[in-house]
Design a protein around this nucleic acid. Sequence first.
DNA 1: CGTGCCCCCTGTCAGC
DNA 2: TGCTGACAGGGGGCAC
Length: 281
Amino acid sequence: MPELPEAETIVQELRRTVPGLQIQGLEVLHPDLIRGAEAAAFRRQLLGSEIGDVTRRGKNIILDSTPAGTLVVNLGMSGRLLLRRPGSHDSEPTHPGVIFHLDHGVRLIYHDVRRFGRLELQTPEGHRRWSRTLGPEPLSSSFTGKRLGDALSRSRSPVHSWLLDQRRVAGVGNIYASEALHRARIHPRRPARSLEPREVQALHRSIRKVLREAIEAKGTTFRDYRTAAGDTGTFAFRLRVYGRGGEPCHRCRAPIQRTILSNRSAFLCPRCQGEAGGDAR
DNA sequence: CGTGCCCCCTGTCAGC
DNA sequence: TGCTGACAGGGGGCAC
């Protein structure tokens, strides 16, 4: 569910509150959410630690905690990281998984209906190793059109599936893959290596643009995603293809199609995104 | 190694 | 009013 813009939104909100707070209590209500260690060890190491910087890698939320290590939170499909201050009038979450009790009565609640999400405490060395398995950050200056083109040229996968692979580019998921390909006018089934140089450049630009715009809108809420404050993101109103099967393309009015690629839905405009390639229009 | 498919889990909604 | 099946922002594991 949550992709880079949703994780980034949560990080920005957490940064305003949690750095400097100590973990006074920790409830692990669903031990199956804890990766890489027993829930008891996870809890023991984090108790008493102080949360430092909050950052992001791809779709993952990273909380430095001293001396425990690096806490990596992946939200899966339905995960939320909710911040609750004492005296909050918000209703209690229905599916809490892990609750961090911080200083001053502040609670950080990991909430997840489907429990596809994961929390993992990593050592500095383990964290570096894990980070190296992910592709470049698409909003960083090191993510260039040339680098994208080189990587695409080594794969026969449909470009939509390629974009979902976190080892290629970190942070793009099903919504923004469909959106970026529509903006770049590339059919999602095109083999990655078949893209022309100008199509690679268009895709590079559209990935960065759609991610930036979605961050500005605090992400896309379809059903489960919420910001740390519990708000919905507003980018759903600005989606051009995702979730719009049968509705007219905003550009050419042709009906948007839904198709299946490696068991995930991909949305496209069959007229704007010709399967044969950029020259076939 | 790269690629495709199944599965993890719960909730919601459309169709009968 | 149920029941059943399809589907949902992700990703790990396994077979080929």
